[in-house]
Computed example of a mutant assay.
Amino acid sequence: MMLNLLPTVILLPFTGVLVDKLHRVKLMMTSDLIQGFLAILITILVLSDHLSMVWLWGYAIVTGTMSAVFQPAYSALRQQVFTPDIRGAANSLTQLGMQGMRLIGPSIGGVLISLFTAAIVFGIDGLTFIISFIFLLFIKVACATKRVKPTGKLENQPRLKTFGKDLLGGFVELKKHAWLWVTISAFAIINVCTSGVVVVILPWLINVHYEYSSSIYGLVVSASGVGSLIGGLLFGLKKTWRHRGILAYLGMSLEALSLFLMVEISWVPGLLMVIALGGMGSMFFGIIWETSLQELVPEEAFGRVVSLDILGSIGLMPLGYLFTGWLAEVIGGVKTSILLASVMTVIIMAALSIPAVRRFE
């Protein structure tokens, strides 16, 4: 898992430049082909009894690298395709689709593994990348880079210096909008709090602290997805939302509230409702955030900005998981969840204390 995430964290600032310089659809197609080929290769290696951990380590590194290319390209492509008149509804549908797949994807994987073997399922996964490649063939968009013929001193600048300016372009764009850089900074910590609780504390809470079966844990995870689906549907019903800065952080306040309440409510229906409420609030924030990026960031710089956004979201997660596990052993899982929810609440309040965040429409 570390080898899979590390290349993504390291390469995101650089791949953002590539996304803004090269054709985004072609980058995604290349990523799909490489990941599809590797997944099918794993199947072949298992069936021929040649698979070793070295191959799996290599698989993790390459797929992590391709993720650093695909994700910012995919986000930037949505900005190109989702024109302002359909942007709100299109982002809602995209998030609904993602949440739907997160709900049924693990179940499909479990069924396939029970019917076949893990090796065969790797091959099936490889075919899904090929299907994605075929869909991308139907998307016709231009390269986002504005073609300006260099003149004067600009033409004689060293390539390394020019690349350095391109690399800093994302930071320059972020500085123009307090809403963007404040929120990315805030979520570098908020994501550590939420993911730490959900990934580390929640399984322990359900299976050990409340002594429920794994099926209840599955219901709880599904409840979050259901809440997200409801949030996406509600958001998509209205074409224009006002006071989006306040609304987005109120959504994350619901997520923080769910982290507080889930360690106090052991009644299963109540627990499911609390988790669903958090999922709904998180979805509201997610749609507002993606739409705001598409509105504020120019097309030719979007790849670099969204790469910094993804980097801020996942950069501290590996350390966050480690810290959450350590803290839970020291003070207990319940206190850890309350502490992380408290930190999250403080950061939300600090962000809302900034006028530019509150006034974002």
Rank of each mutant, 00 (worst) to 15 (best):
M1H: 10
M1W: 09
P7V: 06
T8F: 00
T8R: 02
I10S: 04
L18M: 13
R24P: 01
L27M: 09
M29K: 12
D32A: 09
L33D: 03
L33H: 00
F37V: 13
L38S: 02
T43A: 11
S52N: 10
V54S: 15
I61V: 14
T65V: 01
M66Y: 07
S67F: 01
A68N: 04
A68M: 05
V69R: 04
Y74P: 00
R78M: 15
Q79M: 14
Q79F: 05
V81R: 11
V81E: 15
P84F: 10
I86A: 03
L96R: 07
M101R: 10
L103R: 01
P106K: 06
L112P: 01
F116Q: 08
T117I: 04
V121G: 06
I134E: 10
L136H: 03
L137P: 01
F138C: 09
K140M: 13
K140R: 15
K146R: 15
G152K: 02
G152S: 08
G152V: 06
R159D: 12
D166V: 05
V172E: 15
F187K: 05
A188R: 07
C193Q: 07
T194I: 08
V198Q: 13
I201R: 00
P203V: 11
L205T: 02
I206K: 01
I206Q: 03
H209F: 14
H209A: 13
Y210F: 15
G218P: 00
V220T: 15
S222M: 12
G225W: 03
G225V: 05
G225N: 00
G225E: 03
V226S: 09
L229Q: 05
G231M: 03
L233F: 11
K239P: 02
T240K: 09
H243D: 14
G245C: 06
Y249S: 05
S253E: 04
A256G: 04
L257N: 04
L257S: 12
M262C: 06
E264F: 10
E264K: 12
P269E: 11
L271Q: 04
M273Y: 09
M273G: 09
L277R: 03
L277H: 08
G279T: 10
S282W: 11
M283Q: 11
F284T: 12
G286H: 05
I287K: 04
T291L: 08
S292N: 08
E295H: 07
V297M: 08
E299F: 06
R304F: 05
L308S: 03
I310M: 02
L311P: 05
I314S: 06
G315N: 06
G315P: 03
L316W: 05
M317Y: 06
P318N: 11
Y321V: 08
F323G: 05
F323R: 04
G325W: 04
W326D: 02
S337C: 14
S342R: 00
I347W: 00
S353W: 09
V357D: 07
F360K: 09
